Simulated scan of single mutants.
Amino acid sequence: MSNVEADPAEVTCTSSQRESLLGSVEVLEPRDVPLGGPRAMSVRRTLPQKQRSFIGAWCFCDHYGPDEVRMDVAPHPHTGLQTVSWLFTGEIEHRDSHGVHAFVRPGELNLMTGGRGIAHSEVSTAATSVLHGVQLWLALPDAHRDAPRDFQHYAPPTVLLDRVSIRVFLGELAGSTSPVTTFTPLLGAEIVLPAGATISLDVRPEFEHGVLLDTGDVTFQETALTPGALGCAGTGRSTLTLSSRDGARVVLLGGEPFGEQIVMWWNFVGRTHDEIVAYRDDWQAETDRFGSVEGYDGARLPAPPLPGGRLRPRGNPV
């Protein structure tokens, strides 16, 4: 999905240098971001924020719906990242400059790699009246940030553990392993807890973890989350505990701390201000860096103006 804000923020992200506090959970409350104007789709964004830029390599988290809305995002570019699309309700048609024509459906992962550069469009299907899901980005490490275009699709099986259903779309959890390729060690899973359920999950202690509450009520470790909030836990935990009084659906994210600095503006992830300027220039000039999207009926999405001044560092406070 494109970040179609008319005035995207300048963001330089660094990995957290704070020590793990095993008893604490940091809660990131979402901010509402309208995409494409007052009549367009609105999302709840929890990453990045001033106090935290990453969970592992996860660097962007938008949560949207359920809304009666039509999505029509024209071809737009990406660099230096992988996009992760996960739906709860609805269906989206995907086309990209790698030649892929696919559909995003509930319970099925679509992961697109836009290293050196890729373009894609996203349009909700005619049969879709309600959209509900998450859009996530993964920052590519420096050694792989110019990776070639790629697209992977995976429909994970549902694992039942202590009445709790789990779909692992990235990494490994509860005996289920995703075959999808990523460039840093990661975890991504949808977890549905019935009323009165409590579950303790064995996880990798070298991972940071985040729990995004979609619907219902959930307590993560000993911290209650409100719908749309993202609870973050540092490294050092070998188990994570989730419980729900009335039932809940959450998305669990995890990964090894991302030890690099990135600059993120609009749909680009780079390392410097000058790189971002070059990416924008290439997109506006329609160079072969991003290729073309075949089959979309309409014009490409133009890049917004760059902010005044140079993009400056902003990292996680200690």
Rank of each mutant, 00 (worst) to 15 (best):
P304N: 08
E172R: 14
L22N: 02
A126P: 02
P106A: 10
G133E: 11
G37V: 00
L230Q: 04
R310E: 14
R249H: 14
G291K: 06
S16W: 06
R45K: 11
V84K: 02
V43K: 02
S244D: 03
T14Q: 04
H132N: 12
Q135H: 12
R95D: 01
G236M: 14
L111I: 00
L230A: 05
G254W: 02
V203S: 00
D217M: 00
A9T: 02
Q82D: 06
T181L: 13
V159W: 15
G255S: 13
T182Y: 08
S15Y: 01
W137K: 07
N110V: 09
T158V: 15
R39N: 01
S244K: 11
E91Q: 15
G210W: 09
R249Y: 04
V130C: 07
V211A: 05
G175L: 08
T89F: 00
Q135R: 00
I118V: 08
T235I: 13
F54N: 03
P302L: 08
G188W: 06
V134N: 00
E286K: 14
E275H: 06
H101T: 14
G291P: 00
T79G: 05
P77H: 07
V159N: 12
P157C: 07
V211L: 09
Q49W: 01
R289D: 02
R245H: 04
P8E: 04
P8S: 08
L136S: 00
D67I: 15
L187G: 06
S85C: 01
V164D: 04
S53F: 10
R310N: 14
T14D: 04
G231T: 11
R312C: 10
A195N: 11
L225I: 02
P304E: 00
P77S: 04
S20N: 10
A57R: 10
G114A: 15
V33L: 14
R163E: 15
T241P: 07
Q17I: 07
S42H: 12
Q261N: 12
E260H: 10
T239Q: 10
E256A: 02
P38M: 01
T198R: 15
T272G: 12
T182H: 09
P305S: 13
R280S: 13
A233P: 05
